[in-house]
């Protein structure tokens, strides 16, 4: 819930000053942005930068790369604003572009680097270390476990897991963003959950015990 709220809000620094402007509907913002209104596109960016950036991060696994690809996503979105047919589905459209940008990047340069990064940090073995009772450490460790577990999912499963579990997109939206059929979305999601479950099991046990 907390993440959803954050995702829906603008960047912290501009949240208050732009609160009124954020009441703008996507349709209005797009219409204005299409006419070259930079402020309108800035509001679109403010509204969607964080969820889009998080999604890209889920897919590529590296913060710097996610930032660069977020930039690329919004530049591409700007260039293609005319191509957006259903203004009500701005979020789905942006996620679709982000998915393409992330996948292209993975195909070209990132894949090997990600593999090395994962190999350099065999955090799977760390699951032998029981989570400490300290909440912060537990969260940090859990975040790392989840991050690496997501990175180990194959690309399709990573996409659907991120979109459904971490971004609460509907199956229909996920199908539109990824181009997968809904049965494939369901199957990949189920398998992704099973793989993730194996990785976070120690934490599930702790959670159940507490």
């Amino acid at each position: 819930m907390k993440r959803q709220m954050i995702d829906a809000m603008s960047l912290d620094g501009r949240r208050k000053t732009r609160a009124g402007a954020l009441m703008n509907s996507s349709v209005d913002l797009i219409a204005r942005a299409r006419r070259g209104d930079d402020d309108a596109f800035r509001l679109i960016f403010d509204r969607y930068a964080r969820p889009v950036s998080s999604f890209i991060y889920d897919i590529v696994g590296q913060r710097e790369q996610a930032e660069e690809l977020t930039q690329k996503t919004f530049v591409r979105a700007y260039r293609n604003l005319k191509g957006l047919r259903d203004e009500q589905r701005l979020s789905t459209w942006l996620f679709g572009i982000a998915k393409n940008v992330a996948r292209e990047s993975i195909r070209t340069t990132i894949k090997d680097r990600m593999k090395v990064a994962i190999d350099d940090h065999p955090l799977v073995e760390l699951s032998d270390d029981r989570p400490t009772p300290d909440g912060t450490l537990l969260n940090n460790e859990l975040n790392r476990i989840i991050h690496d577990a997501i990175g180990d999912l194959d690309e399709d499963k990573r996409l659907v897991f991120s979109l459904k579990v971490l971004h609460q997109k509907s199956y229909e939206d996920i199908a539109e963003i990824t181009g997968f059929s809904i049965p494939k979305v369901k199957t990949d999601l189920h398998r992704a959950r099973a793989e993730m479950r194996r990785r976070i099991r120690p934490y599930l046990d702790t959670s159940a015990a507490s």
């Binding site: 960047l11 977020t70 700007y78 260039r79 989840i146 934490y203």
Partner: peptide
């Protein structure tokens, strides 16, 4: 549900900095 709750607490080390918009603005 417990599993779902754990994923809900997942926080990425991601921050959307003002410089990102500046770069986008430069590009466009």
């Amino acid at each position: 549900l417990a599993e779902h709750e754990i994923y809900s607490s997942y926080e990425r080390d991601i921050e959307v900095t003002p410089i990102l918009w500046t770069r986008i603005q430069e590009r466009i």
